[in-house]
């Protein structure tokens, strides 16, 4: 079985599916993340009887909410520490693009804060560019090259909503695993910028 966790947007989801037939979903759940990790652990506990049979764990690595992605990667690493299950990361925008594979020129956007946007560009489901960051003020010009633009959260100038799902992530991960079996990854959130070097003035 494959366990997929997608938490890069406020809409979190988890899915357990067969590696050989990822359309065959054994269990799936979704919820609003609200910046907390507690629900994810409740969902994992509910799947506890299935965990010994999990052969692959897939995590949506964004770009998106660092808090959500890190909670998922941390939890996945905790499972791996005990179960020894391989872990792979999948770009979350790829899961959105797979849902919109007929769009000739698709842009998947997310808020990158600091007056920037994350964008990943696709043509008929194939990634063309990114993920990368663009200044928010350059959005209008960027949209001119796209036929469809989506984001999981409301972003001014982007009217369409699309959320990456763990179910789609499981399918992509299963395909990736079949193409490159047995590999070991140490997934991280997709970091497109270095850490902001603002030290604490007071220790915690």
């Amino acid at each position: 079985m494959i366990l997929a966790i997608e938490t890069s947007s406020p809409h979190h989801s988890i899915c357990l599916a067969r590696v050989s037939a990822p359309d065959d979903v054994i269990a799936a759940s979704s919820w609003e993340g609200l910046g907390r990790s507690g629900r994810l652990l409740l969902e994992l506990d509910a799947l506890r009887p299935h965990l010994p049979g999990v052969r692959l764990i897939a995590i949506g690595t964004g770009p998106g909410s660092f808090s959500g992605i890190r909670a998922a990667i941390s939890a996945a690493k905790g499972l791996r520490a005990v179960l020894g299950t391989p872990l792979i990361g999948i770009c979350s925008a790829d899961a959105v693009a797979a849902d919109l594979a007929r769009v000739s020129r698709l842009g998947v956007f997310a808020d990158a804060k600091r007056k920037e946007l994350y964008v990943t560009e696709y043509a008929l489901g194939q990634r063309l560019r990114g993920p990368t960051t663009i200044p928010s003020e350059g959005l209008e010009d960027y949209l001119a090259r796209l036929t469809f633009a989506v984001s999981a959260e409301p972003i001014p100038g982007i009217p369409n909503r699309a959320t990456p799902s763990a179910t789609r992530l499981a399918q992509l991960a299963a395909a990736s695993w079949r193409a490159h079996p047995g590999r070991h990854e140490d997934p991280e959130p997709i970091y497109l910028r270095g850490p902001t070097p603002t030290p604490l003035t007071r220790n915690p």
């Binding site: 909670a71 941390s74 939890a75 905790g78 499972l79 520490a81 005990v82 915690p204």
Partner: peptide, 23 residues
């Protein structure tokens, strides 16, 4: 806690998943 929220969250999520997997 107490500590840095994002830093705490990594270890806390990791350890809870360890506990779940280990029963």
């Amino acid at each position: 806690g107490p500590g840095l929220a994002s830093a705490l969250m990594t270890g806390h999520s990791f350890a809870r998943a360890v506990a779940i997997a280990a029963g």
